[in-house]
């Protein structure tokens, strides 16, 4: 089992890295969304290697099923746009931030990668629906209920943001002679 796990890990890790790179490198948003789908799936595989079966399912259901669909909706609504080619002026900050983040991520990997923590013995039913359910409803009841509140607030916020007209639109309506493009 361990051998197959490590094979699975290697495969999923490479897939996650590659699809992550693809997500940020794709020129079309729709392609990026597809790469992200692969990425989320590979993460679900990684969760499996960590004996988190329930989370792997949630990952697929919520991320791939709900969030990503939302992304695709919006992409379709706005229209598949391209990034303009990087201008010369933007080259410097982009290079700088790439170098900075790379050094940060690599040094973090170097430092934290030395952490030596043995994997502990798995209790019966670890990561299963029952165990997670017990943890959610017994240990983390309050945070779980708070999630419901957060989601409600988010929905209200979305309504507010997406429905209201912007100040500029309002001013354009008030003064119709103003330059309609």
């Amino acid at each position: 089992m361990s051998a197959s796990f490590s094979l699975l890990f290697s495969f999923a890790a490479v897939l996650a890295l590659a699809s992550g790179l693809g997500t940020i490198a794709a020129r079309r948003p729709l392609r990026a969304a597809m790469f992200l789908l692969v990425h989320l799936g590979s993460l679900a595989l990684l969760y499996l290697t960590l004996s988190a079966q329930f989370l792997a399912a949630i990952q697929v259901l919520v991320y791939a099923g709900a969030i990503l669909v939302l992304f695709v909706f919006v992409i379709m609504m706005i229209g598949p746009g391209y990034d303009r080619p990087t201008s010369f002026r933007a080259l410097f900050p982009k290079t700088l931030s790439t170098v900075l983040i790379l050094s940060l991520a690599l040094s973090m990997a170097a430092i934290l990668g030395r952490v030596d923590l043995p994997m502990s013995e798995l209790p019966e039913g670890f990561g299963g629906v029952k165990a997670i359910g017990l943890a959610l409803y017994r240990v983390a009841t309050v945070p779980f209920e708070l999630i419901a509140m957060v989601l409600t607030v988010a929905v209200l916020g979305v309504l507010g943001i997406a429905r209201k007209k912007t100040a500029i639109e309002l001013s354009r309506e008030a003064a119709p002679q103003g330059g309609e493009e």
Partner: peptide
């Protein structure tokens, strides 16, 4: 957003360097 985010990255890196 990018420029400001880069500044955040600079700050994080400086903190990181200070500690290590």
């Amino acid at each position: 957003v990018h420029a400001q985010g880069t500044l955040i990255a600079v700050g994080v890196l400086l903190l990181f360097g200070f500690y290590f």
